[in-house]
């Protein structure tokens, strides 16, 4: 069912992803301001609150950049730039409706490989500035990565197994009837958790946490800071959007066209994550590692086993 996209889609994808990331960040800022200072008294105030991330971007652009002594500037630049690039590359296999920029034959593995580049990116951005707090942030992310990656890989493998295809389009086609989220609930839940962990956001924001003065992003300023913190939102958006073709039926749905269903479902997943963030306390990496290895990994293996048995007897 996958169709070829027009050639301008390559250029539209980064713009679209960046726009969705900015809207999501704006919604998060609106919720944060509402929790801090009460509900907005006028639509104008609400708009001003939602525009806070965009104002932050502009402020970073005009502000005098800070430098640290004996920083490895090249590694900082590579690390900060790699994060949004990795998120964009992972987004290449995201279908809008039934069309993605490139429906690679190994799309699911490609998505996994590209979001894994975040490991290198965050560690480099943490190491480069020659600052203890940002170094701690970089190491925290590696520890968090070791926790989330194994259950995450098993969860997306389970979706591919259920569809008997590594192509994201194939996974969507296999869900024209029953969504994978319905009969693979554990894999779906693990995917949402690892989406938060890989974007080191919400309950998993310790790598850039306030207790280490911003962690991996502590010493970044100017464009580097925009790239790393923006790349984090992009990664969150791409990972949340990826749960739609993998588990929520992609563009399948009644009445509305495919692209509209993708937009509605992605918005619902992002809204759920924004809501959940305000209901869950922050989780330290070492506790999360234990939960991930002792509970989630066996759970993901059992889920994969159940799906494998169902697929064999279909």
């Amino acid at each position: 069912m996958a169709e070829h996209p027009p050639s301008w889609a390559v250029f539209a994808l980064p713009v679209l992803l960046a726009a969705v990331a900015l809207v999501t960040a704006g919604a998060d800022a609106l919720l944060a301001a509402g929790a801090r200072a009460g509900p907005a008294r006028s639509p104008r105030e609400a708009a001003a609150r939602a525009a806070a991330p965009a104002r932050g971007v502009l402020r970073e652009l005009v502000r005098q950049p800070r430098r640290t002594r004996a920083a490895d500037v090249a590694l900082v630049r590579v690390g900060a730039a790699l994060l949004p690039v990795a998120a964009m590359l992972a987004g290449v296999v995201l279908p809008l409706g039934f069309r993605s920029v490139s429906d690679l034959p190994e799309g699911v593995v490609w998505y996994n490989a590209m979001e894994a580049l975040a490991w290198a990116a965050v560690w480099l951005a943490g190491w480069g500035p020659n600052s203890a707090l940002s170094l701690i942030g970089g190491y925290r992310f590696l520890a968090q990565g070791l926790a989330y990656e194994v259950p995450h890989m098993l969860a997306i493998t389970t979706a591919a197994l259920g569809a008997e295809s590594l192509r994201v389009g194939g996974v969507v086609d296999a869900q024209s009837g029953l969504w994978f989220a319905v009969w693979m609930p554990a894999a779906f839940g693990i995917h949402l958790l690892s989406a938060l962990a890989m974007a080191f956001w919400g309950p998993f924001d310790r790598p850039a946490g306030r207790d280490v003065a911003g962690g991996a992003a502590a010493e970044l300023s100017g464009v580097d800071r925009i790239l790393l913190l923006g790349g984090r939102w992009l990664l969150l958006v791409v990972a949340a959007a990826m749960s739609v073709p993998l588990f929520l039926g992609g563009g399948h749905g009644p009445l509305l066209p495919g692209w509209a269903w993708t937009v509605v479902k992605t918005a619902a997943v992002l809204a759920f994550l924004l809501w959940a963030r305000r209901r869950v306390p922050a989780l330290r990496m070492e506790r999360w590692t234990e939960a991930a290895w002792v509970v989630l990994t066996p759970l993901a293996v059992v889920q994969a086993l159940v799906v494998a048995v169902v697929v064999l007897h279909r």
Partner: peptide
Amino acid sequence: LDYLGVVVVLMMTLEMSVMAV
């Protein structure tokens, strides 16, 4: 060999990040 190539990228990224430590 698309699959092997992408798996090389995936495994080497994870492995070298831990190797850095």
